[in-house]
């Protein structure tokens, strides 16, 4: 039964697996001394969740910001939906590690901010924002301010803001690193559910192996500085059961172990 489900998942996956984001020969230097990334080549299939996993300082954030168009690469190019990236674009939305919420704006205004910048009228954008605030489980908090919310709730606002602009690709930079363990698990489950509903392509930076295995279709392992792709792993974890069961699933545990061994050489 499980095998059948897995096979079904894989066939549907390969049907939709044209890359939406391609990273070609990307390299990045900061100044003349720091080489953050060296010749990164990756493709991100449509509709999948890909994690970028690697030790601290290996260039995960740098790569994500280059994909977002927030940083210029030193060499190479990023292609999104067939077009070379020259800056931020409407088909990509970023979720920030430190939330990046405006402290002077309510949850509603923060969630609607992407639409506000596009010049969409207040009534319409607030309607959309309310929908996504509800989707991320924050209804009732529309008129609160960020300082009144917990870390987990703040990141939900960040996620609602990214969902509201209806981008195809969500770029998430360690979205749960400032969130406590309990909320983190809840949030991870919500993210999996949202991914099914919203049909987005997600690129997810993390340095938690468990998180990567639990959430991802593909895991890209980066080596320490200068960051290079050292391995790509497809966990094939069956996520149809309840969350606790998934976390005890042998495929899940084996993959965590396998990555652990791969990364252990880099530990300092």
């Amino acid at each position: 039964m499980t095998a059948a489900v897995r096979m079904l998942r894989e066939t549907t996956k390969s049907d939709t697996a044209q890359p939406i984001v391609e990273v070609r020969h990307i390299s990045k230097r900061y100044g003349s001394s720091v080489e953050a990334l060296r010749d990164i080549n990756l493709t991100f299939p449509t509709g999948q969740l890909t994690s970028l996993l690697g030790p601290s300082g290996c260039g995960k954030t740098t790569l994500l910001k280059i994909i977002a168009g927030l940083l210029e690469p030193t060499g190479g190019e990023v292609v999104v939906k067939g077009k070379t990236v020259t800056g931020p674009g409407p088909e990509r939305a970023f979720v920030f590690q430190d939330f990046a919420l405006m402290p002077w704006a309510s949850v509603l205004r923060n969630a609607a901010f992407g639409l506000e910048l596009q010049g969409i009228d207040k009534k319409k954008r607030e309607e959309t924002a309310r929908h996504y605030i509800n989707q991320v489980g924050l209804s009732g908090f529309e008129n609160r301010y960020p300082h009144e919310l917990s870390g987990g709730m703040r990141q939900r606002v960040g996620l609602a803001r990214a969902l509201a602009v209806n981008a195809d690709v969500l770029l998430l930079d360690e979205p749960f690193s400032a969130v406590d363990e309990q909320n983190r698990r809840k949030f991870q489950e919500d993210l999996l559910r949202l991914r099914e509903v919203e049909r987005k392509t997600l690129i997810f930076v993390t340095h938690s192996i468990e998180e990567a295995v639990y959430l991802s279709d593909r895991i890209v392992l980066l080596s320490p500085r200068p960051g290079r792709v050292s391995e790509i792993i497809e966990p094939h974890v069956d996520r149809s059961g309840p969350p606790d069961l998934i976390r005890r699933n042998p495929a899940y545990l084996d993959t965590v172990e396998e990555i652990w061994h791969g990364l252990r050489d880099y530990a300092d």
């Binding site: 931020p88 674009g89 990509r92 920030f96 405006m102 002077w104």
Partner: peptide, 27 residues
């Protein structure tokens, strides 16, 4: 002014004027 708020504004396609009036000045 928070660099991350400015990056946020740019990533959601805010132009220079919006960045100044909606992020820089309030912050």
């Amino acid at each position: 002014v928070s660099p991350s708020l400015r990056a946020m504004c740019r990533s959601f396609l805010g132009n220079r004027r919006q960045e100044i009036f909606k992020i820089v000045l309030p912050d």
